[in-house]
Write a protein that binds this DNA or RNA. Sequence first.
RNA 1: GCCGCAGUGGCGGAAUUGGUAGACGCACAGGACUUAAAAUCCUGCGGGCUCAACACCCGUACCGGUUCGAUUCCGGUCUGCGGCACCA
Length: 803
Amino acid sequence: MAKYNHREIENKWRKIWKENPVNVDDGQKPKYYCLDMFPYPSGSGLHVGHWRGYVISDVFSRYKLLNGYYLIHPMGWDSFGLPAENYAIKMGTHPAKTTAENIASIKTQIHQINALYDWEMEFSTTDPDFYKWTQWIFIKMFKEGLAYEKEMPINWCPSCKTGLANEEVVNGACERCGDPVTKKNLKQWMLKITKYADRLLNDLDKLDWPEKVKKMQADWIGKSYGAEVDFLVCEREEKIKVFTTRPDTLYGATFMVLAPEHELAALLATSETKEAVDKYIYESSLKSSVDRLQDKEKTGIFTGSYAINPLSGEKLPIWLADYVLADYGTGAIMCVPAHDERDFEFAKKFDLPIVQVIAKDGIETPDMTEPYCEPHGLVINSSDWNGMESALLKAEAPLIIEKRGLGKKTTNFKLRDWVFSRQRYWGEPIPIVHCPACGCVPVPEEELPLLLPNVESYQPTGTGESPLAAITAWVNTVCPSCGLEAKRETNTMPQWAGSSWYFLRYIDNKNDEALVDKEKASKYLPVDMYIGGVEHAVLHLLYSRFYTKFLFDLGYVDFEEPFIRLFNQGMITGKNGVKMSKSKGNTVSPDDLVRDYGCDSLRLYELFVGPPELDSEWDDRGIEGVYRFIAKFYNLVMENKDKNTKPTKEMLRIRHKMIYDITQRLNNFSLNTVVSGFMEYNNKMIALARDGGIDKETLITGVILLAPFAPHLAEELFRELGGKESVFSCRWPDACENLMADDEKEVAIQLNGKTKKVVRMAADLSQADAIKLAKEELGERLIGTIIKEIYVPGRIVNLVVRD
RNA sequence: GCCGCAGUGGCGGAAUUGGUAGACGCACAGGACUUAAAAUCCUGCGGGCUCAACACCCGUACCGGUUCGAUUCCGGUCUGCGGCACCA
């Protein structure tokens, strides 16, 4: 009999499927759009970690196919980005060339997985046909006032020599290279993502996403409720607005602090303090955000001016301190040292008064040695507010303040507008012309795409100008509006620009007239299942949601959320949980494993290593186990396919239980236990075959269930079992609960909750009979008086005994 | 500091709503087949006690609680990982 030969079987079906695709749109079937986060075509190729996500999505896709769906399962390339550009700087090779080569080699590797990708849908974000529409969206945003230019201090990565979005700064360092981020004053294109803050927050409820990711986005958006309160400056015209989430503590405000960048900061200095104040403002302007974060000790300086507490009328000294952030709230705060940790620390250091206004458990603390920050307790020292509950007052105070004309009820977000320009070469040119007469004028839509020109030097200038600025022939143009001489914008878009909407394009990737045909969009979109790593929780996934909402508002798509369901696969790591990377030399290439064990074995093993949502350490040795399973199953089918064994009750039971277990585990995304389940049922079937044979229908069922996981093997065996068409034209089998049920069950007999014996008994045995049986089984071991008898049919009998 | 997740054999990991802890696999050990090896098949495999078996005892990070019964629920502690980090 033929031995399992993975190479022969896999090559055979690879070829046949290519000629006879198994996933076709007949116009009748419902669609299912299952998408992988598209890869950046890096030069180091794929390792076994990359396989995991692709295998998970393909398994799920093929499962949907067997459930009667037409699958949309595309693949493309996120190919703008720094590595290709840095390589160009070093070697002088054009990034387009490097990118094309990398795509070709990664594609070869991806083909090894033999996932159901529809390569007709493929594109790269660097294709002019594609980035035409990336630019087009930018122009739409510009026209809607959502893209605007602003000069401000932005995050600057000195190593990448470009500005960064807030989302790209991780613990004060560049998300990409890890170098500390500094501030730089630059004129930048910004996207007004903050306009969508509320919707981005509220619509999280609609999504079938991991709670963790939703929470990360909610925290990033960071909505807080409170009041904006006006404080008048003594003997001057100015008002200082502050935002507070604790207006209930307003009577406890004993001083104020402004960020050094606040517009009034320098003005509030008196002739005596001016010199010191200017010095402080200058010094803090030199500090990087990292320095500012790392300063343990708070610094600050008194301006010499005072403000009036609008409720108590007390005079409050106004200070400057860099622990107050210029770009959150109003850049100024009222300080309640008794009930805020930072204010407390500051007050202690500079010897400012501390007034308690909330008494924990209603008891006033004589000398506060630490602040009390919980909004629960009795309001004290607060005139007409005395005696109220803090939590209630916290909710009501904004309205009271608003009624008295001292401020207004308001909310605040941590989310900032998106810094959208990059001072680098390898990105989409921002399609704007700067005209001395008309200002910023968008490139006319019919002139798109605005092609990225070739440059001589890819080297970023580091001065805040893009390498494009050096190409005068490209930069110098005429204003599309008035025809006067004008200059092109030379910054490019960030890498996130293309990935923020690419999922819309797959289904209509050759459309020249529109970003996506409206009819097709409403038929095939949005994405039903999105699979990728958790590292994009706030970057790509937040940007994509923003873009989709924007396109919805303009009527180009009819849904507001791009990804209905999200699954984050865990990372595959090397030994001891170390991330796989070329530099650490711990990557494992799938190529050798495919050669030695086959694609099907590697697919199964990728799932078997551990729960798909958790990180797993890779250990090559384990693949032997799944290979053995495949070979054994192959032998089982080949030996029994022609025997015409009549199904027994036991065979039916195993068949239906197998359907039930595999389906349920698959639906729960418990893919590692699906594989162990196959092994278990395979062992059972082998035992059955030995004890008199196994029926063909049970074997066919096993083959269909295995098809999403080991498609080549399943197809081969399905044909061997007499299948005329592809196994993927079958329907996923249904489990019949009646046939699954076992007449007899193994029941544990316990004495005081401890198992003493395991006995087979009828599943529907009555309580009285079960107890009687248990007593007989225990025999002499049963000493003392039975005070309680517990019987869970099919599971346990427990006799509780006391001496 | 705050929030979230996790901790089970030598290893990866299983255990519907609390109901036989350690499925499945790896590694290891013994055996069969073979001149031999590989492959394959069979057996064993948490710890203690025991020559051995039965029995018994301990055991899901640690301490305590609820329960007839806890890996699962509750309270506290420790450790590891992830997110946020002066957001007023």
